[in-house]
């Protein structure tokens, strides 16, 4: 099975968010980047598990600059065979999806795996876009997946429940919790990762369909109003008359 896993970086959740250039740019100074958790824990490890069970290869792809290489090496340390970086700064989901699809279309992957979303922009956009470019079904929010011959069976989250679906490869699948067990890279993996191929390819120059023109921090929250634990009638009254939520 020939598997492609889309890997992105994301600021560590404890990052303090601030903006520069008149609030038009995310302030990256001092930001610690991690592999986007869904990509690392679920998409990548699922790819490796499938390869271990069925043979084949796991290639990662990242749209990004040399600054992304540390993230890519971590994915290689966890167990991907090789990596491709498409050399352009990722600025828009449409651009990322177009670049990945442009690279993948002639490679004949059986499976394209992604995380369910990036934790910085929380878009959940790239997977569906790649699926449309490559004319494949998109199974979103998969919680489990088994492959038998050419057919995959997946559980996916739907509104208010879980759906079990069956589809033939090739597929694009976005991976959520449950899909795989997180793996921690060991020393051997980290050493091996240094020698694994990381191929840098030119971007095709896909257009930006959207632009973030400005950012703003939410208005600071007013201090919490403390309620006497013995006076829950007061809380209900406030929720009704003041907050107007019940």
């Amino acid at each position: 099975m020939k598997i492609l896993v889309c890997i992105s970086k994301a600021p560590d959740t404890t990052t303090k968010i601030s903006f520069t250039d008149g609030d038009t740019k995310f302030d990256e100074s001092g930001v610690k980047y991690i592999v986007n958790p869904y990509d690392e824990w679920y998409a990548l490890v699922k790819g490796i598990e499938l390869k271990e069970a069925h043979g084949g290869s796991v290639t990662t792809v990242t749209v990004g600059t040399a600054e992304d290489d540390a993230t890519i090496r971590k994915a290689l340390a966890i167990g991907a065979d090789d990596a491709v970086r498409i050399d352009v700064k990722a600025e828009d989901a449409g651009q990322v999806a177009a670049e990945i699809s442009n690279y993948a279309k002639s490679e004949g992957y059986d499976l394209v795996l992604l995380g369910k979303e990036t934790i910085d922009y929380n878009g959940s956009q790239v997977g569906g876009m790649i699926a449309e470019h490559l004319d494949m079904p998109f199974i979103s929010l998969a919680e489990s997946m088994e492959v038998d011959g050419n057919t995959a069976t997946l559980d996916k989250e739907i509104i208010g429940g879980v759906q079990t679906v069956e589809a033939d490869l090739p597929l694009v699948v976005s991976c959520a919790k449950g899909m795989a067990e997180q793996r921690i890279p060991n020393m051997r993996g980290i050493m091996a990762a240094r020698k694994k191929p990381l191929k840098v390819v030119d971007a095709s120059g896909a257009a930006l369909q959207t632009t973030f023109v400005k950012y703003a921090l939410p208005a600071p929250k007013s201090a919490v109003k403390l309620i006497d634990p013995n006076n829950m009638d007061e809380l209900v009254e406030l929720l009704h008359n003041e907050a107007k939520v019940i």
């Binding site: 600021p11 959740t13 990052t15 968010i17 903006f19 934790i119 910085d120 922009y121 929380n122 257009a207 930006l208 369909q209 959207t210 632009t211 973030f212 023109v213 400005k214 950012y215 703003a216 921090l217 939410p218």
Partner: peptide, 13 residues
Amino acid sequence: VFSGKAHGFVKVN
């Protein structure tokens, strides 16, 4: 954006 820690304003091109 940023898991609810900020807002962004998006322009469609």
